[in-house]
Design a binder for these strands. Structure first.
Length: 265
DNA sequence: TTTACTGTTAGGAC
DNA sequence: TGTCCTAACAGTAA
């Protein structure tokens, strides 16, 4: 389900199969309550081609030749499929680009939490959203600045797309598990070394997931992703996986090796 | 039948 | 002004 690695996999799928093909039509599925380009916006894409892709955090951008960018956000359950002519129509398709030769790009979204829109300028869009640096390319100093100094729970800071774009609930938990930080620890209580370890861990985790094409079954068995059940054995110490809500989101962690890192008491 | 869910954001509390 | 927290969005699956 969509965090940065899924967005990157979707972007790659588009880059591999949907560029440099003339767009013949745009089709909408059942889209009530969803943000979709209106008829005028859709008409702007007809006859042109997509020529490039970009991703920032969980946000996907597909550039048309000399024209607008198609922005796609996968929401909670969205996915991208690129199909050859004659392929069966997947379920829950909300937005389809039909290329020459009946080649198709489908945006599926069962829960309708995703968004598709046409934008003129990617940088202006990112700035307008107030998104922080991309989690895969952010530097050490920028990471420390984004996450350190926050008085609230460190997990909430990791999840904030305004501080750092791309990390969601699953990989925030995985990062904290690997670095031994309690999700409720206050970021300002963590020393610079710990913050640096979290940066390294988050980047390594996200890159590893990207490298599998966001296929979780190919990730190492000792990762938390495979043990998100209260009562499971911790794979890093003798502890047990517990569950609690932090920042409104379900968090799995090991209370034995994940600590709050307070300097005093 | 009830409950929880991977993301985002508006609105309210402090 | 900023920061943080909660609720709500819609549909599915356990």
């Amino acid at each position: 389900m969509p965090e940065l690695p899924e967005a990157e996999a979707a972007r790659a799928r588009i880059a591999d199969g949907a560029l440099n093909r003339t767009i013949e039509a745009i089709e909408l599925g059942e889209v009530s309550h969803m943000d979709m380009p209106d008829a005028d916006a859709r008409a702007r894409l007809i006859g042109t081609q997509f020529t490039r892709t970009h991703r920032h955090g969980k946000y996907i951008f597909v550039g048309s030749k000399g024209g607008p960018w198609l922005h796609i956000h996968l929401g909670m359950a969205g996915s991208i499929r690129v199909c050859e002519a004659g392929a069966d129509l997947p379920k829950y398709v909300r937005f389809t680009v039909v290329f020459e030769g009946d080649h198709r790009l489908h945006f599926r979204d069962p829960r309708k939490f995703g968004h598709v829109e046409l934008i003129e300028d990617v940088d202006a869009f990112i700035g307008g959203k107030g998104l922080g640096p991309d989690a895969l390319s952010i530097g050490d100093n920028a990471f420390a600045q984004a996450i350190g100094g926050t008085r609230g729970a460190v997990k909430s800071a990791l999840l904030s797309q305004r501080k750092l774009a791309g990390i969601g609930n699953l990989w925030a938990d995985e990062t904290l598990y690997r670095t031994g930080v309690d999700p409720e620890a206050r970021a300002c209580d963590l020393d610079a070394g710990r913050i640096g370890e979290m940066h390294t861990a988050s980047r390594d985790i996200l890159q590893a997931v990207v490298d599998t094409g966001a296929d979780y079954s190919r990730l190492p068995g000792d990762w938390l992703i495979h043990h998100r059940n209260a009562g499971d054995d911790c794979t890093r110490c003798d502890g047990t996986i517990e569950k609690k809500t932090v920042g409104g989101r379900t968090s799995y962690f090991c209370a034995s090796h994940q600590t709050k890192g307070e300097a005093h008491g």
